[in-house]
Structure formats: C-alpha cells, structure tokens
Write a protein that binds this DNA or RNA. Sequence first.
DNA 1: TCGAAATAGATGTATATACATCTCATTTGC
DNA 2: GCAAATGAGATGTATATACATCTATTTCGA
Lengths: 144, 144
Amino acid sequence: MSRTYPASLPCLCANLRRASRALTQRYDQALRPLDITITQFTILQALSLTGVVSQGRLAEILAMDSTTLTRTLAIMSKHGWILSEPGPDRRERRLSLSPAGRRKFQAVLPHWQRTQAQLRARLGPDRWGDLMNAINHVALAVTD
Amino acid sequence: MSRTYPASLPCLCANLRRASRALTQRYDQALRPLDITITQFTILQALSLTGVVSQGRLAEILAMDSTTLTRTLAIMSKHGWILSEPGPDRRERRLSLSPAGRRKFQAVLPHWQRTQAQLRARLGPDRWGDLMNAINHVALAVTD
DNA sequence: TCGAAATAGATGTATATACATCTCATTTGC
DNA sequence: GCAAATGAGATGTATATACATCTATTTCGA
C-alpha cells in the first residue's frame, strides 16, 4: 500500500466508485471554466448521438434512473440547451438538443477531447481499450 | 447497439460513471434489507482494514473529498458505528470502528460477499481480475 | 518568539443520485 | 366500451459528492 493510495480495496463496487470519483473530479475540473459538468456534457453528447429520444430511453442508455434525469434536465433546460416536446404518447417527453445546446456541445467538445487525450496518453491505447471494454461489460452484466 | 443498452459512449468518464451507477444500484439493492448503503459499508470495510486513521487519510484512500466524508460519517455516527477522537494534532480526528461498527460490518459481510460472488461468477475470474487492475490503474493515473 | 502561511476539518450551497409515491395517459381484459 | 392494470414522468425526501469559505491549530521563517 503506497503512502497516498492503496492499490485496491476488496470490493469491486468500492474500487469502481473510487475510480469514478477520481475521473469525475478530473473531467469536472477541466470543464469548470465552461460552466458545465461532465454529467451535463454527457447528456449533451448522448442527445447529439441519438437525436430525438424519450426521457425513459435516455435514462436506459445512461443506466440512470429516469427521475434523476428529470432533475438534471431541469438544470440544463434553464440554460436553454434542451428541447422537450410531448410525443404522440402524451405521457412521454421527446427530448433533443436545442440550437443553443448544439452550440454548447460544440464549444465544450475540444476541452473534453483534450482531457480524454491526456488520459489516454497516460494509460496507453491498449489499457484504454481494455478498460473501455471491461467497464461496458460490467454495465451490461449488471443490467440484464 | 442493443435495444436497451448501447455498447459504449465515446467518453471514458461517462462509461465509468454509468458502470458505477449500475453497480451501485445492484449492491445497494442487496444491502437494503440491512439498512446500509454500499458507500457506508465501504467505509466500515476501509476502517476495518486500516484501524485508527485520520479523516484526511481515509479520504485519500477512497479518493474522496474530506468534506464529503464529514457528511457520511455524521450519518454513520448517528448509528453508533464510528469512534472519533482528537489526535495529538488536535485539528485532526482519529477515526475507528466502534464495537457496534464492528458488529455491523460482520453482519453485512456475508451479504456483500454473496453479491460479489454472483457478479464474479457472471464476469468470470479473468475478466474480474483484469477489471480490478484496470480500474485501480485509472484511479492511480488520475490521482498522481 | 512571533506573525504568516499552511493544514484539518466543519459548514453553506449546489449538483448527482435513487426510491417511494403521485398524477395522468395508455393499454388490456372482459 | 369501460374498469383495472400498466407505464411515463414529476415530486418529496434522503444520501452522495465536491467546492468555497470559515475556524481552530500547527508549522515555518525571519
């Protein structure tokens, strides 16, 4: 065990949560000057990939409770980044990026990219790829 | 991309956070009958491994802001699980498990173990080991 | 030695997260 | 066709998380 950091705890969840906190702090720090969090940027990115999508489906994609999304979308809507229209099924909200949301996404993109690139360089492309595979496999294994 | 779940987002942090949410939900669900969260159990486990430790050092071990720990420890202290005494340096708090904390940890341990074992079986021991390595490597790479 | 700088943790505030429960809309069984 | 069951999302509440700032203590430099 190093002075400042133990190699591992016995719990996979604890270790994953620790890595998640560390990474989140790093990304949030990089995005702070742009007044957006990695949580919010992730939603911009997801919407930019999916196009129009219901809140429930977006929650599924992010393995996030749909009611959590309600709160975060409220914050993002205050910034004018989100379009939310009732669908043909009028219980559901059909979400998409507003023009301001697209602009915001484009503005933040290079900062996000720089942060990813730094981390990728530090880990090496092999470890990076393995990591991406592994964590997505976990998410899958847990979800279904 | 499956119907209910996309293989991957382009952002490492987004994917790690997604896996973290999914895993946390799974562990929390398993521990719910015992009235404890995986966050709190992780602190019991960490204290059981370290013995007496300062709040700052514990925060370092968990890659968690020390002030975050203040809030979670307050909840755990209400349950009587935590001993907190001033150290020789009287700014710092020297934390350890109370007898009730040790009992709680022992009581929860088998439930945590069962959850881990299920997940490990599902992932396979190779993937499990790779995953543990990879995520701890990320935490290290980000932290120093 | 004494004042300045640094450090440990507490507190105020904002976001992130999920569950229980509620409302309203849709689907389903008869 | 209608009552019951289901489903989508909103709201109340509790925990998790971090940053800015504050207080109390310690350390450090002249």
